[in-house]
């Protein structure tokens, strides 16, 4: 045999680790901010919602960046209904299209949702864009 004891150590370490390790490796959570744009449309008295995942505790910011026709809308942040039927709101504001975050809420990690809704001003249908910044 030509193998050296050094090779034995290597083989042993691999075998021992493979055979005995039961510890799961923790994965690091991202701490950088992310932004997505929620674009959709709805008819008079309607609403649209979308869920997203917050990876670490941080501020979630909502900005209504576009609405056509240009009407004031309600925008809110909340928790998704378990049956997927919408978004139960935590906080909401009524806003016109703007450039700075119009609603900011600190949120724990988890799956949350945003909702855009008619406050009685949508004539027939509105198309909107909502920027959502989160962690």
């Amino acid at each position: 045999m030509t193998h050296t004891p050094r090779l034995f150590f290597g083989v042993l370490a691999v075998l021992a680790a493979a055979g005995c390790s039961t510890t799961a490796s923790p994965t690091a959570a991202s701490s950088s901010a992310a932004t997505f744009t929620f674009t959709s449309s709805f008819t008079a008295n309607g609403s649209a919602s979308r869920s997203f995942e917050q990876l670490t505790t941080g501020v979630v910011g909502l900005t209504l960046t576009a609405a056509s026709p240009d009407v004031r809308l309600g925008i809110g942040l909340g928790i998704p209904r378990p049956d997927g039927s919408g978004c139960n709101l935590t906080r909401a504001v009524e806003v016109a299209v703007g450039g700075a975050p119009q609603l900011t809420v600190t949120a724990d990690p988890g799956v949350w949702c945003v909702r855009v809704y008619d406050i009685g001003l949508v004539p027939e249908r509105v198309t909107f864009a909502l920027d959502v910044s989160h962690f």
Binding site: T57, V60, L77, I79, T90, R91, V105, T106, A107, D108, G110, W112
Partner: peptide
């Protein structure tokens, strides 16, 4: 006794 929030 608390209002709704998104933090525990």
């Amino acid at each position: 006794t608390v209002p709704a929030a998104l933090q525990s």
